[in-house]
Design a protein around this nucleic acid. Structure first.
Lengths: 235, 235
DNA sequence: GAGTGGTCTAGACCACTTA
DNA sequence: AAGTGGTCTAGACCACTCC
């Protein structure tokens, strides 16, 4: 673990431990430098990381302060999309389908592969505290995600990819629509046809920009409470 | 303008000018350092800024590459929420109401003010290439946003706040729901009652964490195509 | 004007990719 | 092994806030 990550983590921990409220001031930079035996740049980098995460804000000439969200019960949208955050909640998954198949044109296009290549197809319904949260269809490039089984698919596929397969996950593109539920979707989500839906397509890329996962997720509108934090107004 | 911002802007410009495609490699760091007469850290900072914006990605030991989104016609979700990006599109606004009033409890809570303080209330419908995009109700803390009129409200209120009033905009919290349109909303958006809606509440803060704008926006689901880019998978 | 955050530099050293 | 990105340091200097 890098030094600035470690410092960031420790600062975060003290915010949590001491239950610091919105607006509380953190120690000044110089203090943090001696406390963590690090240079100014390193501490700044740690602090900027926390700012990016929305945990603190810095005011030039004044200090570093704690930032806290007010409302509870919202799923936070992070750098990893919604899925990263879902660990905090009690999420379970029911696997409906899992097989190896040839991609459709749409899938091949998004995964940047050939129609003759193989993909893993996974269809799941995910539940949050007993209620349906979303319906998810994912396509994994089999030449990257070489093996999947029911057990893996029941849990966090991403943990498996990064830890089990040693692949480095890079970034992702998300496309979001609002629309009405079709009959089949409504049944699986235990809602009515024509109800609102949040539809999100995501393409996940490795470190080296190779797409490995294309997924289409339909969210239950009743559970769809999301929270975003923006940092820094530029331009 | 800061040196690293300037460098970032120039690099961005060359990507646009030379129409560089996804995966194209940029000059190596050393080259950029001499080209822009800057230290490694400064160039790195510029490059990281562009990475955060989703324009490039860096692969350790390999190089810096151009990142491009595939699909057209989506509204990009940026650090400033959707509104920042809307300038790229042809957006107009029709002002329905504009007055000074006392806040409701909900508004007072979100703006962190007293029930006896004054707020500016603005209600607008915004159009994108002739079609309704969203219905927007905003409450501005009058002790910060001291003056508004019809002309200002027709354009970009944020430009006015930062340039006209000299206030420094800091960060924001966004809360998002999916739901069904009520009758009045449907009429204003030229849709049908019960149609899906994307409902977004945003609290905008100044630099010093004082909230100055609480706004509630209902998006037309037919126009609601949003695009997000995530960078870096951590944890 | 004192205090505090933020930029910038030059250079040492490390980590990963490519071949 | 060579090339390239990334971390870290020490210190100079600048910009903003608060008293």
């Amino acid at each position: 673990m890098l030094k600035y990550e470690e410092i960031a983590q420790k600062i975060e921990q003290t915010i949590v431990d001491k239950k610091l409220e919105q607006g509380k001031k953190l120690p000044v930079l110089e203090h943090l430098m001696t406390e963590f035996q690090a240079s100014k740049s390193t501490v700044m980098k740690a602090v900027s990381l926390l700012e990016k995460k929305g945990l603190i804000y810095q005011v030039r000439g004044s200090g570093i302060f704690v930032r806290k969200q007010k409302r509870e019960g919202y799923i936070r949208f992070t750098n990893q999309g919604f899925s990263g955050e879902l660990r905090r909640f009690n999420i379970t998954a029911k696997v409906l389908e899992l097989d190896i198949r040839k991609p459709t044109e749409e899938v091949a296009e998004n995964l940047n592969i050939d129609l003759t290549d193989d993909v893993y197809y996974v269809k799941r319904v995910r539940y949050i505290s007993g209620q349906t949260l979303c319906l998810e269809e994912s396509y994994y490039n089999k030449s990257i995600v070489t093996y999947l089984n029911h057990e893996i698919v029941q849990g966090s596929i991403f943990d498996y990819i990064s830890e089990g397969l040693g692949q480095k996950i890079g970034f992702s593109d998300m496309y979001m629509h609002i629309n009405k539920l079709k009959r089949e979707e409504a049944e699986l989500l235990e809602l009515n046809e024509g109800d609102p839906k949040l539809f999100v397509e995501t393409i996940f890329y490795l470190n080296n920009a190779q797409p490995f996962d294309y997924s289409k997720v339909t969210y239950n509108f009743e559970q769809s409470q999301f929270f975003f934090q923006s940092t820094g107004y530029s331009l």
